[in-house]
Amino acid sequence: MSDVRRTYLFWIALSGAVGLSLWKADVRMNDLFAPDARSQMAAMVRSMFPPELAPSFLRSMITPTAETLQISVMGMAVAIAIGFPLSLLATATITWSGILHERYSSSSRGVGFVPYAVARSFLSILRSIPEVVWGLMFVRAVGLGPFAGVLAIGVAYGGMLGKVYSEILEGVNLRPAETLQASGASRLAVVTYGMLPAALPALASYTLYRWECAIRASAILGFVGAGGLGQQIELSLRMFNFHEVATLLLILWGFVFAVETLSAMVRRSLAR
């Protein structure tokens, strides 16, 4: 098939998919902007103001806020511990294909393909299960509380980090790695000297973005009993106390903003 026809086919397929989804997902913009819908939303937003700022309430939120932060930090630590080693195996250029493997026979490359395929499929299983489902499972295993949240984030995000890390590593220019291998460096030394340094800014930036997501996710996980701010949000929602909900959302926004700032700082210092 010619390139032109393939391009046409791609655009036809894409617009077909979007059109079908628009229809089947029941997208009715009129409903969103109907007078009834507008007044309902306005009422809910109005009921959030002013946010609850009573000292006693704020004081009682210190522990769950700290808990959310701890869940996200520990969750990310677990996620990196799972995702990083797997990502090295899941990187084709490290395990079985490309210039670093040209010298080896196809049977010897096949030996590298096995851990690659296993790591890839394992990572995809980890991330195809939503973190809320992981959360429900871990709440059953280790009981209510932050530890279940840590495990849920660690496992689900381990799958995402591993996949994206391996894609970042596959995008690295292999020339330096090739030169190092040609001078007799071991595979692990080739990766740490020739590939990881070049990938580091992208790896760090993606990890920080995931940490931001983990803070939000730890709030969602609170809904299924994994502690932290999420549990408070759920409680306040159920009591129709939207003033408190507003305060809690503001705290989350503060976190997201802080991580964003930190991420910009780290990226700047790495790009130096």
Partner: peptide, 16 residues
């Protein structure tokens, strides 16, 4: 390989 040294046109080194 350790007895053979290599220099390429460019991009030999890890810039970072």
């Amino acid at each position: 390989r350790r007895r053979i040294g290599m220099i390429y046109q460019q991009q030999n080194l890890v810039g970072w």
